[in-house]
Computed example of a mutant assay.
Amino acid sequence: MNEPTTALPSRFERFGLYHLERFERENTGETAFEIPDEELTRQVNRISVKGVVLSCLVGMICVFPIIYVDVRFTNASAWVHYGWLIAVTVVATAIEFYCLFYISLKAVHKVSELIHLEHVMHESLEDGIFGVKNILARTALEINDPELKILGIDPFKRISKKNLFVLGLLYKGKIIVSNLLLKYSLRFTVGSRLLGVPILYAAIPVEMFWNGLVILKVIREARLRLFGYALANKIADSVAADGYLEILSPEAKKGCLRAIGNAVVMTQNYHPNMIILLLRFKDLFQVEEEDRYDDWELFLETLREVSEQERNFLLDLLTVAAAFDGKLSPIEKEHLQEAYQQDAELYLKRLTDLTSHLKNGRLNAALSLCQLDFIKG
């Protein structure tokens, strides 16, 4: 049984949705595909710079009182010292988190205005946990995407949940570890003061660095997800408009869902770009039941059984789906060779170029490589 894609968002996600709903939208009238890639890049960079500057200022302002209190009460009793330190840390951290979340939400909102998704949205995706605002809220707040099994496809079929948990802990602890390493390395090399300033203040540039890095990461991921959303809808609309729904055989239609499903499994996460593509094709083919759409051997069998033209179409779709998260995993590279066979060089170049365009924010260049047809390559 498939889990619904209209489940209620978490309380944290609703916090993001609340702010995104309140932000006013500017509409220039141009669609995302009418704006040159160079202009899109320039405007995204401008949003990024503003976000980084604001996040660095927030880090500096919020960390300063924590360090000041730590230095000010160093010689006081433990109760006084740590009482003040804990109280100020809790308040300052809460303020910093709220400000950073707000900056992130505002940044992804500004990026979404550039894309003008209202021109490429589809009614089947407007609501639910894979709606645009839900995706943006999770991106800005760095919330994991929901673990669903759409059409029985398991994104973690080839990866350990324990490994994902450990990686998450390491990621969340990066700032603490950086601060400790810097503080104790400086204390070991130059003592408790540097140029008359207590070493504890070294935490300020570290905090500013990580805050800026997180904002950059959020904006780049938001751009990738927004581009993927726009492209997935564009691809699905083109398939319908070009009459492929009437031409493709029932086996080839299953092959389409297996191409996307196996791309999800090889990527080892439920990246929204792939899910949007999967949901649009699921809607196009009016499929609701599971049929081992994440089975790689069945997909290879389908490639052998369909006509040469349909095989070309399926390899096009597999290439696009594999590129949609903006990176290539070792598992993808290994398995794609099996599917491409003698045409590996041709399709791998397209895959590499498309991945690069998506990762670097070249929307129109990416669109030119997302065409699905019956022609090889």
Rank of each mutant, 00 (worst) to 15 (best):
I235E: 02
E221P: 01
V63M: 14
G51Y: 06
T31G: 15
N211E: 01
I143D: 02
K183N: 08
I331S: 09
V108H: 02
L248G: 08
T74F: 12
E147R: 13
G51D: 11
E334H: 12
L195N: 04
L151K: 01
I129Y: 03
A32C: 11
L231F: 02
E30P: 00
D294K: 05
L245F: 08
D145H: 13
L245K: 02
E290F: 06
L182N: 02
C62N: 05
C256T: 10
H271G: 02
M274L: 15
H116G: 13
I129K: 05
F299A: 06
A321Q: 04
Q268T: 07
P4W: 05
E288D: 14
Y82R: 06
K110R: 13
F188M: 12
A344D: 14
Q309H: 09
A323E: 03
A222D: 02
L348K: 10
D145W: 09
E338N: 12
S55T: 07
V265F: 04
T355A: 05
L257S: 04
L17C: 03
V239K: 00
S124P: 02
P198M: 00
K253A: 05
G361Y: 07
C99F: 10
E297F: 10
A92G: 00
A202T: 07
L314Y: 09
I275V: 15
